Amino acid sequence: MKRVILIVLDSVGIGEMPDAHEYGDMGSNTLGNIAKARGGLHLPHLQELGLGNIAPIQGVSPKASPKGGYGKMAERSPGKDTTTGHWEIAGVVLERAFPTFPQGFPEDFIRAFEKRIGRQVIGNEVASGTEIIQRLGQEHVQTGKPIVYTSADSVFQIAAHEEVIPLEKLYGICEIAREMLDGDLRVGRVIARPFLGSEGNFYRTTNRHDYAIEPPHKILLDVVKEKGLHVMAVGKIKDIYAGHGVTDHVPSKGNKDGVDKTLAFIKEKKPGFIMTNLVDFDMLYGHRNDVENYAKALEEFDGRLPEILDLLEEEDILFITADHGCDPTTESTDHSREYVPLLVYGKKVIPGTNLGIRPSFADLGATIADYLGTEALHNGQSFLKELI
């Protein structure tokens, strides 16, 4: 019974890519810079798999004989957002980046959107999600006007207090936005950003919901499902891929819950593919430039890695990677254009395999498809023969 478990550590980049200057990300190195700022990271289990062999990380030593395969991957698509990174992992390489709106969305669109939803909006600017609800949250509570904002990524985000605009109503507003944002306005994701609390103490809840655009062709999850295998999605994976190929889905409320639910899927022993996104690194710490808690989250994941490894059976392969960077040590609070780490472990995997620098995230998807015996993906070169 072949199974693949893929864990995406959201935003855990491992050093700037050669074109990082085009994105204003010179010097970004999420793992390396956190380790330097912290005086070292304690990641013994990731170290055993070969994390320290990929790039210098203070406190994470290279191993003479890593237990797994190791390397890093470059993003071939332009961009540095969640959708682009996850899509490329699944076999979609973009020709051009999703549109961004550094000056906010066009006024004619906003007016048309307000007409469709039957209420005015406030905001329409580039902002941090945690900052904008503190600044505009009380006005929203008093007026019922949703808060619209974007970021350096291709997103249209709508924040609303759950006691002012109930979740189902907010989700409906987001669905209208997703329908309207087409053509030159076709952002990668519309995101519902519910929050609670009172003036001065507003906080985002875990009831976020993403509305992604449809992939342009078959992706990894589609071909695994078509093979008759299970595709088990944890966290925002189902949203990112607009539901494509998913047979079993559970939302997650943070990294701990995401790991718990990944372990539960592994214990079910269904043949196929488990894909997990652990979002806290990015959402709670990267975007808030919170170095210390980012570091703690990395160490907490490392501490739970043995639970995952202990459940792996003879035919299981575990892949650990990321979708982009989000270096909390830089002035920017946005994603960063970085390589992502690639770690592979399984009883059939040749220990210490140096996978080098893969030219595309799509190589990972191609390798998973190859191992599970599905049809080939549109992009990517399998490195399975190097592994087993």
Results as ranks from 00 to 15, higher is better:
Thr30Tyr: 11
Arg76Leu: 12
Ala35Lys: 03
Val93Ile: 13
Thr100Leu: 11
Thr82Pro: 02
Pro102Tyr: 03
Thr82Arg: 05
Leu43Asp: 11
Arg116Asn: 06
Leu46Pro: 02
Ser77Trp: 07
Ser28Met: 09
Ala37Glu: 12
Asn33Asp: 06
Arg38Glu: 12
Gly71Ala: 03
Lys115Ile: 01
Ala20Asp: 04
Ile117Arg: 11
Pro106His: 03
Tyr70Pro: 03
Glu114Pro: 05
Phe98Trp: 13
Gly32Lys: 00
Lys115Gln: 02
Gln103Leu: 08
His21Asp: 13
Gly13Arg: 08
Gly13Lys: 05
Val93Lys: 00
Leu41Pro: 13
Glu16His: 07
Ser61Gln: 14
Pro18Cys: 08
Thr30Gly: 10
Ile14Gly: 14
Asp25Asn: 15
Val92Gly: 04
Phe101Cys: 08
Lys36His: 07
Met26Gly: 09
Ala35Gly: 06
Glu95Ser: 13
Ala20Arg: 12
Lys80Leu: 10
Arg76Ile: 02
His86Ser: 08
Gly68Cys: 06
Arg96His: 05
Pro106Gly: 10
Glu95Lys: 15
Arg38Asn: 06
Ser61Ile: 11
Leu94Asp: 04
Ser77Met: 08
Ile89Asn: 00
Pro18Gly: 01
Gly69Tyr: 04
Ala74Phe: 10
Leu41Ser: 10
Asn29Val: 09
Lys63Pro: 04
Gly104Glu: 11
Arg76Cys: 08
Asp108His: 14
Lys67Trp: 01
Thr84Trp: 01
Lys63Tyr: 05
Ser77Lys: 11
Gln103Ser: 14
Glu114His: 04
Pro99Ser: 02
His45Val: 11
Tyr70Gln: 07
Ala37Tyr: 10
Gly85Pro: 03
Leu41Asp: 11
Ser28Tyr: 02
His42Met: 09
Ser11His: 06
Lys80Cys: 09
Gly79Ser: 08
Val12Lys: 10
Asp81Pro: 06
Trp87Lys: 08
Gly15Leu: 03
Pro44Phe: 10
Glu16Ser: 15
Val12Cys: 14
Thr82Leu: 05
Gly85Gln: 00
Lys115Asn: 00
Pro44Glu: 14
His42Asp: 15
Pro106Gln: 04
Ala90His: 12
Ile110Val: 15
Lys63Gly: 02
Pro62Phe: 05
Lys115Thr: 04
Glu75Gly: 06
Gly52Lys: 04
